[in-house]
Design a protein around this nucleic acid. Structure first.
Lengths: 210, 210
DNA sequence: GTCAAAATCCGAACATCGTTCAGTCTAGTG
DNA sequence: CACTAGACTGAACGATGTTCGGATTTTGAC
């Protein structure tokens, strides 16, 4: 039997942990990543800087934790895509939602893909294969399953060595490039979501069986 | 007449400036971006930390200068694409070279697109339009001209509101996503360049007039 | 209820960082 | 030669992430 109920102590511990994370998120949103400091977090939740180390191993761990939350939010944003859409349109709208998430959550997105990669090499355990790594990512799996629907419906062509997984990676690369450029170089010059949609249509067109 | 010859003093100045930049580049390559410090640069070229401020306004300016150099190298890497290739293949190989540059110069590429964007908002003057901004980027213009060749040859279809410029952006987004993921999440699991080629073929296929 | 152990939390300190400033030395100009 | 502008340093300032010893509180076992 698993002891499901947690002690009040653990509950307080988790609550304080969450308070730290939300404080970090707020600071990043208002001051930018550079403005995030242990002292700023501590002050915001009425703690001493040293007290934070009771809940996180250090600043890096806090950043990684914020990223983990953001990755889950991204996956949720992708899952919000209307499942009633035809397979290809569904896949395309997943991509649009990916870009939309990046634009609406610039701070979080930049953190996920510019700060975490520099830290994660030490924090995340190295996976054996790329496939085993990506299968643990809920966000990627939404794209993967969307591609699978297209293949199962006989719309997308597969080849030996280029199955659902490889096609899903190609889709991810495309939408990730869109999102990444949108939050960096094009930050001040956002194209319409329809222009992203048009580009994704082109990629889908190249994949469709003919 | 322009005074072309520069004084020995200015020559020394420029040489020291270059020494600072190469020192910074080497430190980033061996220690990572986090290991880059004014003191480390100064020590490597036998200077006092304060002496560096005679040549650069601060650490941010040094980083931006390193990025500017790297952007020029990227443009050069794209220009190395064999011009004898047919238009579409030429465009595709430009993309492959973009990804190859990212993989071969991971430190520089990460610096360009993860550090600089956070600083450049203060350093670079905001451009009026996206087009005027990108036209100043030699690297992007290589892609742009490659797309133009495809359009002029009657291979790529254009539409009102989706001309050479818009298509070039789509290509850039694709290759940028490939490169970005290659140097972050897939850093330890590099797919072959041929798999990138195959994905780029799909995008090109969607653009080809039919 | 008692009491040792564990969990919190803090103040002070340490090392490091980017940056500034007053001053010294040197090269170039009149 | 005198003078000025540039080059360079040492010491310092404020801010940062982190550690450590100790004080305080909470918990669980007897």
């Amino acid at each position: 039997m698993v002891q499901e109920s947690i002690s009040p102590r653990e509950r307080r511990h988790q609550r304080t942990q969450q308070a730290i994370l939300t404080a970090a998120r707020e600071i990043i949103h208002s001051e930018g990543v550079a403005g995030l400091s242990m002292r700023a977090i501590a002050e915001r939740i009425d703690y001493s800087p040293a007290g934070l180390y009771e809940y996180f191993g250090g600043k890096d761990e806090i950043i990684v934790a914020v990223c983990d939350e953001a990755f889950e939010q991204l996956a949720q944003a992708l899952r919000n895509t209307d499942p009633a859409l035809p397979p290809v349109e569904y896949l395309r709208e997943c991509g649009v939602n990916y870009v939309r998430f990046a634009i609406d959550n610039t701070d979080a997105f930049l953190l996920m893909f510019t700060q975490a990669p520099l830290l994660s090499l030490d924090h995340y355990p190295p996976a054996a294969t790329l496939e085993s790594l990506l299968r643990q990512s809920p966000a990627f799996m939404v794209l993967h399953d969307a591609v699978e629907r297209c293949v199962d419906a006989g719309l997308f062509a597969t080849q030996p060595g280029r199955g659902v997984f490889e096609i899903a990676i190609a889709c991810w690369q495309m939408v990730h490039g869109m999102a990444m450029l949108a939050v960096t170089i094009m930050r001040q010059h956002q194209p319409s979501l329809d222009s992203y949609r048009a580009s994704l249509n082109l990629l889908a067109l190249g994949m469709i069986k003919r």
